[in-house]
Design a protein around this nucleic acid. Sequence first.
RNA 1: GGGCGCAUAGCUCAGUUGGUCAGAGCACCGGUUUUACACACCGGGGGUCGGCGGUUCGAGCCCGUCUGCGCCCACCA
Length: 891
Amino acid sequence: MSTTHQHSPTVNARIPDKPSVDGLEQRWSQVWEQQGTYRFDRSASRDQVYAIDTPPPTASGSLHVGHVFSYTHTDCVARFQRMRGLEVFYPMGWDDNGLPTERRVQNYYGVRCDPSLPYDPAYAPPTTPGKDQVPISRRNFVELCLRLTVEDEKTFELMWRRMGLSVDWSQMYQTIDPGSQATSQRAFLRNLARGEAYQAEAPTLWDVTFRTAVAQAELEDRERPSTYHRIGFPASHGGRIFIETTRPELLPACVALVAHPDDERYQPLFGTTVRTPLFDVEVPVVAHPLADPEKGSGIAMICTFGDTTDVTWWRELSLPTRPVIGWDGRFLPEVPDWLRSDVARQTYESMAGATPFTAKERLVAALDSAGFTEGDPRPISHAVKFYEKGDKPLEIVTTRQWYIRNGGRDAGLRAALVARGDEITWHPAYMKARFTSWVEGLNGDWLISRQRFFGVPVPVWYPLDTHGAPDYDHPIVPDDGELPVDPSSDAPAGYDQTQRGAPGGFIGDPDVMDTWATSSLTPQIVGGWERDPELFAKVFPFDLRPQGHEIIRTWLFSTVVRAHLEQGSVPWRHAALSGWILDPDRKKMAKSKGNALTPIDLLDEHGADAVRYWAASARPGTDTAFDPGQMKVGRRLAIKVLNASKFVLSHDATATPDPTVVTAPLDRALLAALARVVDEATAAFAAYNYTRALEVTETFFWTFCDDHLELVKERAYGSHGPDSAASAGAALAQALDVLLRLFAPFLPFATEEVWSWTHDDSVHRQAWPTAAELATVAADGDPTLLSEVSVALSAVRRAKTEAKVSMRSEVSHVLVHGPAEAIARISLAGTDLADTGRIATLDFRADGSELGSSGPHLPVHGVVMRPGPDLFGREGKERCEESEQDIERLR
RNA sequence: GGGCGCAUAGCUCAGUUGGUCAGAGCACCGGUUUUACACACCGGGGGUCGGCGGUUCGAGCCCGUCUGCGCCCACCA
């Protein structure tokens, strides 16, 4: 990189007569691709690398405006770091594995996966989805998933390119591609070997629609109406114990009643038994501190399992298991063997195979008619756990599942993971609290197995004994070199396919891993862990993980877990959490609400630079209102950059480090003021405050355009000779050169367009500007001069505006007066001020006066004018008196 | 129930360690067709900085408290 730029002899010919922001995106994104502008140079050393762990967007549909928003933030940081001299490792991935893709494929093609079907190599999906979903084999289904995600990902890539993301597209990955699968399986197998992954048969939160287990991190509470039913249990010593429950249909699964140990009402019952109504099962009355005396009747029935509290009680009180709900969410078809009496069996038969809803209706009716209920059902509203992607309440089903230790059952590991959070710099800092509180609140290990089809398979097989029963305690694992494997179609070493399912043979684990189990490894996947050790050493730990704050508990946390277990390190040094886009009602913009605009529409209407400007105006972590007005402002800024640049560069001036060319005090002041802006923008950017960097640059730029450019225009055209013109032109060129680089991370298209008028290389590979590079030319320039002259100019303009005359109107006499130092400075720019204000006679008076309404921090205290009555066409006396300005107009 | 964040002009938001901090942009009103830009430029009005109390010579800024909004988490009988 270099700050001295070669000049083309055809400078002016490259400047369009009518610069436009339209069409820049297509042109420059192509050039960047052809020239490899953003290609990562892996020959850089580790301390020269800035590595980004890019969030792979879910490839299950379309991008929305929230993506544009947050990815812009990351891109601005990436571009800054690149210009700062770092090699930026900026990959892009697609999270295509998992449920969202399955659902999209089902809807798109009108198919569903039936793993029992054989693979049909000739299968072609229907051109239009039929009314009923066509069952197809798992392999056919996966092929459709791959086919559709490839199409989606092409669209995504075009979108990102049009946004101007400075991604290195040669570093692309999919979470379902073979490399990701191998990494995911390798990490799992290492967890297994170290005892960090294990399987267990245990009560599991279960989504009955998707028929899969779900993890704690994927839960969400939803408020749902329900009803309390008051039910009497016959006590062994006579009388009835009344409980209140929202799930009376679980009565056949009841294993105990529980009350608080201190609850005097029920203390006499502890140690006794009651019998379940109708089902006539004897259950104990037990004590546990989790029982809430205030809730319902103060005594609850424990069922296996109605909720997670039941699981706690069941585990801690060593209660028996009486499951009644199956994987499909319906009551098991067979009458359970613990139901013995005829009434019990008949009652259960009326519920067998039913949904909980139907079973509840039938059982409550039976309880009513048998006189076990008391009073009317009482409506309540309570929180119910749902899978975040599901629409039916979760059930709890006992199943064999794979887990990875995440500190949920191990205080030492939990503390170590909390400490990892302290090693990460959070942007904004308060987001760390969400991480910490999540880790500290974990109550179980991470359930990673899913009973789904499109995902990374759990890479193990199980030997079958001579009776054909699997030995889950001795899984067969593949060698590292075999990865990735699919146990449902590959045979383990030492076996062949004919032994699949046969006694003495093997079976493959049928499950896939949760999508987070793979995406938690994005640093390892994209960084080439075990695949490309040289690369991995240069990028890991990564420098930045950008992501949404709503997935701190999932993606961020699970990535920390994997890196901690595998590398003994944090995965990255910084985590930047982006906010959400809110619609005008301050609700999160979401596709499901139908209020998310497509990004392409926005780009068509405003242009990429404009949309990026809006996004970059939002501070890190802040939820932000969707605001087309800001995009209009951004578009205006981009256009302004083009036009101002055209003016500056039309003078054929050269940015020069030679202080003998830039001699005018105002020109030096400009560069001195710009040096301060550079310092401020750099410090802000380095602290990930890209918004502040943009703001200071933009503010300066408008002063540059509206004041400085106007002040030096006449001189630049040569009105005072070639030397002063050269000074103006060189300073303008120098300032523009710096400003373009300051704007480059935000407005990559407009800045590149302008840069190309005078350069053959890309602005995006230039060095980030420094105050030092301006210092020589700025020389003794005083940055306050520019603002002081601006104040004086503003006062002249105000007088003309109030007189309702053109800014070109001539003024015969202006007196500027104020503190001596300010007057001394301003007088150095007197010629420029007189030219711009079209002032015939400009006088200065240092009197320390405080005329005018300017604030005390404004060093110029008044511009004193007297307009003549005839030229302005009015007296203007009132104005003079009002502002205490003695304005004299000489014609 | 616990935790975090927010509350400043009609709107969207800046205000770094308390002292020129009452700001910006948009919107609004008025003016200017000026050869980089009318996709422009110039100017203007507009806020008791959520309420109350406290610390201080001095408080959007610090402390307490209250109100409202949002988010995260929590064992849902």
